[in-house]
Nucleic acid binder design. Structure first.
Lengths: 316, 316
DNA sequence: CTGAAAGCGCTAACAT
DNA sequence: ATGTTAGCGCTTTCAG
C-alpha cells in the first residue's frame, strides 16, 4: 500500500479558531441545530464551504456508535431481477443518507457465511439478504439478532423462523403459469426448477402441482427436473426432455434465461415452439421478447422491489 | 430512525483489564505484531474470540486517517459487462481488505456529480469510474486529484487528461467487426452506436470508417445512427434502416442488446438475417447465443476486467 | 445562545 | 516484551 500523502483536512477546530468561536457551536451549526443563531450559522457555513470542510464520518460514527451503513447480500449479480432490486435499494438507502455495502455469495453457503461475518464486523445498521442455493441453516445470521441489528430476507428466504421476509406469491404465480399452459391445451407439462430447499422453488412447485390437480392431471415425478439454473443445466434439461416419450407438450421453467436456453436447444433438435412444446418462464427478463417466439413469463422483479423498499424504510 | 439498542461492544480495554495487561499489548497482539510473545498473543486471541470482540473500524480509521474504502461509479448496473467488472473488482478489493462502495450514475452527469461528491465525502482511498453518456467535463473528479486520491477511469474514459485509464482497443475491435462484415460480402454497412463524445464510441466509429476505407468503400454519413442504447432506440434505428433504399446489407452495432432488438425488429418486417442484413454486435452478452440466428459479437468484458484489476492492485 | 470538557476505541511514539 | 500516553475529530452533557 502506497502512502497517499493526502492534504491536511479542515476540521471543526480550524473553523472554530478562525472564527473565534467554540467547536461546540461549529458542530451544532453544521448540523443545522436551531439553537444556533442565524448569523453565526451563516458565518460558519460560508467559512466551511470556502475551506472545503467535510465531516469526518469516522469521528462522528465513533462518537455516535452507529455506522449509517446497510449491508445487502445477494445470491448473484447477473440477473435483471437482482440488478433492479439493487438499483432500488441503493436509491432508498442513499436518499436516507445511508451507505450500502453490496456483497454476493455466488450461490455458495461458504461465501455467504464469509459475507455475513464481514458485514457484521463492519457493523452494518441493518442487513438485507437473499439466500444462496445451498444454504442449509441461518446460524450465521443469528449474531445480527443478538446485537439487535435488523435483518430482512427477500426472495430466497426461510419462512419458518421469525424473520422479516419479503416475497412475492410464488405459489400463485406458478399456479397461474401452469394454468395458462393447461388452458392452451397442454396435458404433459415438465417443471424445470432449482433446489426445492429454497422457498421460491418449493412454492412454485406447489403451485404447479395444485394447478395440475385442479385440472385432474396427475402429477408425475419424472416431469420434475431440478438443476442449478446455469446454461449447461438448461441444455441438459432440454436433452433429458427430448428423450421422454411421449414428448411433453408444455414446460414451466422458473427462470427466463434457462427457459431461453431450453427453447434454443429443443429448436435445434427440430421441435417447434409452442406447437410441440409450449414454454412459460419466470422473471420478466429482457431476454423474453428477444428470443423467438417470445417467451411468456411472470413479472417478478417489480413486485419484490416495491415491497422490499417499504421494508427497508421501516428499519432505517 | 429507530434507536437500535445494540449491546455493549467488547473493546481492547475490556480485554486488557480482564487479562491484566495493557491495551497497547492487546492492540499489538490483535494485529499479530511479532513483537508480542506467543503465549500472551494466544491468551489475547482466545479471550477476544470468546468475548466476541470485533475491531472498531471507525476508531481505527479515525486514528490512521485512511478509510480502506474504494469507490466505484458505473454508468449502469444492467449489463453483463458491468456486472462482471463489478464482481471482479469486489473480489480484488475484498481480498486486499478494502471495502467497496458501488454507485451508479444512470447515464446522467447530474447523478455522476452527486456520486463523486458523496464518495469524496466518504473519503474513499481510491476511485474507479466509467463516465456517463452525457458527462461533459471532468471537473467533479478534480477534487480527488487535489487530495492525492488516485482515480482510475475504465471503459468510458477521457483520454486527453493525464488520467489512469483502462480501455480495450476499441478501434481495433471495431475494425475487425467491420472487416468481418465486408469479407462476408457486405457493401453497405450501417453503424449503430451511441454518443461519439465518449471514447468507446468514437474509437469504434474510427475503426468502422478505416475498415471501410481500406476496402475502398466510401463512408456515408447517413449510415451512422446514434442513439442511447435503449430498447426504444433499437427499434427506432431499425425502422430508420428499413426506410433506406437500397437497403443496407450489414450492420455493426456497438451493443448486443440493441443488436438483438434491431434484429427482432427487422425480422418482424420480413427481412432475413444474415441474408438481407448481416449483424455484428459488441459485448459478448449471454443474449447473443439465444437469439436466432445467433449474433456475432466482440468479446469485451473479459479484456477490461483483467486490465482493470491490475490497475486497482497498483493503487491500493 | 454559546462554551468547556469528557470520551467514543484505537494506534503509535516514547518509555521502561 | 510490555506499558503509558497523547491524540484522531466529533457529539453531547453540563454550565453559564
Amino acid at each position: 500500500m502506497k502512502p497517499l500523502l493526502k492534504d491536511k483536512e479542515v476540521t471543526i477546530y480550524d473553523i472554530a479558531s478562525a472564527l473565534n468561536i467554540s467547536i461546540a457551536t461549529v458542530s451544532r451549526a453544521l448540523k443545522d441545530d436551531p439553537v444556533v443563531s442565524e448569523p453565526t450559522k451563516k458565518k460558519i457555513f460560508d467559512f466551511a464551504e470556502k475551506m472545503g470542510y467535510r465531516t469526518n464520518h469516522f469521528a462522528r460514527n465513533l462518537r455516535k456508535q452507529n455506522t449509517h451503513t446497510i449491508g445487502i447480500i445477494v445470491h448473484e449479480l447477473n440477473s435483471n431481477f437482482i440488478t433492479s432490486v439493487l438499483a432500488g435499494v441503493e436509491k432508498v438507502t442513499t436518499e436516507a443518507g445511508y451507505d450500502l455495502i453490496i456483497a454476493h455469495s455466488s450461490e455458495s453457503e461458504i461465501k455467504e457465511i464469509a459475507n455475513t461475518k464481514n458485514l457484521f464486523d463492519k457493523r452494518v445498521d441493518g442487513l438485507i439478504a437473499s439466500l444462496s442455493f445451498d444454504t442449509n441453516n441461518l446460524a450465521h445470521f443469528r449474531r445480527f439478532k443478538e446485537k439487535n441489528v435488523p435483518v430482512i430476507f427477500f426472495d430466497r428466504v426461510e419462512q419458518d423462523a421469525d424473520n422479516t421476509v419479503v416475497v412475492i406469491d410464488n405459489y400463485n404465480c406458478a399456479y397461474k403459469a401452469t394454468d395458462h399452459l393447461i388452458k392452451q391445451g397442454c396435458k404433459k407439462i415438465v417443471h424445470i426448477t432449482a433446489n426445492l430447499k429454497r422457498n421460491v422453488y418449493s412454492e412454485r412447485f406447489r403451485g404447479y402441482k395444485d394447478a395440475l390437480q385442479n385440472h385432474k392431471i396427475p402429477f408425475n415425478e419424472s416431469l420434475l427436473i431440478i438443476n442449478d439454473l446455469s446454461e449447461k443445466a438448461g441444455i441438459e434439461s432440454a436433452l433429458k426432455v427430448l428423450k421422454m416419450k411421449p414428448l411433453p407438450d408444455g414446460a414451466f421453467i422458473t427462470n427466463d434465461f434457462v427457459a431461453a436456453v431450453f427453447m434454443r436447444t429443443i429448436k435445434e433438435q427440430g421441435l417447434k415452439v409452442p406447437e410441440d412444446i409450449a414454454i412459460v418462464g419466470f422473471n420478466n427478463d429482457a431476454i423474453c421478447t428477444l428470443v423467438e417466439p417470445s417467451l411468456s413469463t411472470i413479472n417478478y422483479p417489480a413486485l419484490t422491489s416495491e415491497k422490499l423498499l417499504r421494508a427497508i424504510l421501516s428499519i432505517i
